[in-house]
Design a protein around this nucleic acid. Structure first.
Length: 183
DNA sequence: AGCTTGATTGCCT
DNA sequence: GGCAATCAAGCTA
């Protein structure tokens, strides 16, 4: 079943764990989501904390669309917009479709390193600012709900300096495709 | 107009 | 484990 606007029109911390196990494809390339993080407007770690800006405009747009931004001057990060000002960062997935293309784009041989981090995932799937604001239930995206819900674990988010104790990182317990093991 | 810093990655020791 | 790469958004003035 395709995940559309109704699924995303809820608080990000509620949506995030339900995305674990879903299948994300971009132009047919992708796999099963194994690691995500939630951000909302009351959260000092969120781009939306200080209100709308040109960069984060998509976070205040319709739910179920993509929010893509560049970090550290070189990497792209993909988010799914939930209720206004909140979104879910897609951090890692288990590669299942389009492995050849992913290897080509990433230049690595180890399958576990293809999409084990937000920047890596965007490189492997060909995500850039060109996809910012696009709906997730239409081409080039394809997002389908999990058939069976995997065991989910939660912990603190990665790489932030504010809101460090908020346990809004959700992962497939014991997955070998995470950016880092859960603490 | 100038300064700081980041929801990261990969290479070096 | 430490740190350079690389640059624009966002903040201070």
């Amino acid at each position: 079943m395709t995940l559309g606007p109704a699924f995303f029109d809820r608080p990000a911390p509620e949506v995030a764990p339900e995305l674990i196990g879903a299948t994300l494809l971009v132009n047919g390339v992708g796999g099963v989501l194994v690691e995500v993080e939630a951000y909302d407007q009351a959260d000092p770690a969120s781009h939306s904390f200080r209100g709308p800006t040109p960069r984060n405009a998509a976070m205040f747009g319709p739910p179920g669309h993509a929010y893509v931004y560049k970090i550290y001057g070189m990497h792209w990060c993909l988010n799914f917009v939930c209720q206004p000002g909140s979104a879910v960062l897609i951090r890692a997935l288990e590669p299942q479709h389009g492995l050849d293309l992913m290897h080509q784009r990433r230049g690595v041989v180890a399958e576990r390193q293809l999409c084990s981090g937000p920047g890596k995932l965007c490189q492997a799937l060909g995500i850039s600012i060109a996809q910012n604001g696009l709906p997730l239930d239409a081409s080039p995206f394809s997002l389908s709900a999990a058939d069976t819900r995997p065991d989910i674990a939660a912990g603190p988010r990665i790489g932030i300096t504010k809101g460090v104790d908020t346990p809004w990182r959700f992962v497939v317990a014991g997955s070998l495709f995470l950016s880092k093991p859960l603490r």
